[in-house]
Simulated scan of single mutants.
Amino acid sequence: MASPKLHMAFRKYHRWLGFFLAGIMAVYAISGILLIFRPTDFLKFEQTEIRQLDSGLTAKQLPNVLKIKGSRVVDETDTHITLNVGEYSKASGEATITRKNYPLVLNKMVKLHKATNNSPLFWLNIFFGISLLFFVISAFLMFIPKLPMYKNGLKIAGIGAVVTVLVVVFGS
Rank of each mutant, 00 (worst) to 15 (best):
E49D: 08
E49C: 05
R51K: 14
Q52K: 11
Q52A: 06
L53S: 07
L53E: 13
L53H: 09
L53W: 06
L53K: 03
S55I: 01
S55Q: 11
G56V: 04
G56Y: 10
L57W: 08
T58M: 01
K60Y: 11
K60G: 12
K60W: 03
Q61I: 02
L62S: 00
L62E: 01
L62I: 00
V65L: 07
L66G: 05
K67W: 02
K67H: 02
K67R: 07
K67M: 06
I68Y: 03
G70M: 02
G70P: 10
S71F: 01
S71Q: 08
S71T: 13
R72L: 09
R72E: 14
R72D: 14
V73I: 05
V73M: 05
V73C: 06
E76Q: 12
T77R: 01
T77V: 02
T77A: 05
D78R: 05
T79S: 09
H80F: 06
I81V: 03
I81G: 13
I81W: 12
I81C: 09
V85S: 09
V85P: 05
G86Q: 09
G86T: 09
G86W: 03
E87T: 11
Y88R: 01
Y88H: 04
S89C: 02
A91K: 12
S92E: 08
G93N: 04
E94F: 04
A95Y: 15
A95F: 13
A95I: 03
T96I: 11
T96V: 10
T98Y: 04
R99E: 15
N101V: 04
N101I: 04
L104T: 12
V105G: 06
V105H: 08
L106E: 14
N107F: 00
N107L: 03
N107Y: 11
K108S: 03
L112I: 00
L112M: 02
H113T: 00
K114A: 00
K114T: 05
A115S: 10
T116K: 06
N117Y: 13
N117C: 05
S119G: 03
S119V: 00
P120W: 00
L121T: 01
L121G: 01
F122V: 04
F122G: 01
W123R: 00
W123G: 04
W123L: 04
L124A: 12
L124E: 03
N125T: 02
F128P: 08
G129S: 14
S131V: 00
L132D: 11
L132A: 08
L132M: 15
L132F: 15
F134Q: 05
F134W: 06
F135W: 14
I137E: 10
S138Q: 02
A139Y: 15
F140C: 00
M142A: 12
F143M: 12
F143D: 15
F143G: 04
I144R: 12
I144E: 14
I144N: 15
I144V: 07
P145F: 07
K146A: 07
L147E: 13
P148V: 01
Y150L: 07
Y150S: 08
Y150V: 02
K151T: 03
K151W: 13
K151A: 12
G153P: 12
G153N: 10
L154Y: 06
I156D: 14
I156A: 14
I156Q: 10
I156T: 14
A157L: 12
I159P: 15
I159W: 14
G160P: 09
G160Q: 06
A161Q: 07
V162C: 12
V162R: 05
T164K: 06
T164H: 11
T164M: 15
T164W: 15
